[in-house]
């Protein structure tokens, strides 16, 4: 087992753990905003960690770059969607003015 492999495994375990915690949070946290909080670590931390682990495992090259790009995409997409979902929740609770666009 090479150090690189160990490193990848460690990253993988960390990433999976974050994802599992998020899933747990999704169920356990009761209020809608709480559920939103559960989403953030999964997209911004968990998924990129796993992508990093995979990139480390494959080694430098085009495949690794692709994996890292995917990680960045998930992270960016996740934060934007979390905001949008939050806004939708706020609208539903009438916290935000409802002049939503077509």
């Amino acid at each position: 087992m090479t150090p690189r492999h160990v490193c990848a495994l460690a990253l993988l375990v960390a990433g999976i753990a974050v994802l599992l915690l998020s899933a747990l949070g999704l169920v356990v946290l009761s209020r809608p905003y709480g559920r939103l909080h559960a989403l953030t670590p999964a997209t911004t931390l968990g998924a990129p960690l796993v992508c990093l682990a995979l990139a480390v495992e494959t080694g430098a090259g085009r495949a690794a770059v692709k994996l890292l790009i995917i990680g960045v995409l998930i992270a960016a997409g996740g934060s934007v969607t979390t905001m949008a979902v939050g806004r939708a929740t706020a609208q539903a609770d009438d916290l935000v003015e409802r002049d939503s666009p077509e």
């Binding site: 990433g15 994802l19 998020s22 899933a23 999704l26 809608p32 559920r35 939103l36 559960a38 989403l39 999964a42 997209t43 968990g46 998924a47 796993v50 992508c51 995979l54 994996l67 995917i70 998930i74 996740g78 969607t81 979390t82 979902v85 939708a88 929740t89 539903a92």
Partner: peptide, 23 residues
């Protein structure tokens, strides 16, 4: 019931599934 909760579930599922595909 609440659409926002459903959306949160769908969102997390998307992320998890994307990671699963890579794995």
């Amino acid at each position: 019931d609440s659409p926002q909760e459903r959306l949160a579930g769908l969102n997390l599922a998307t992320t998890v599934a994307a990671v699963a595909f890579l794995l």
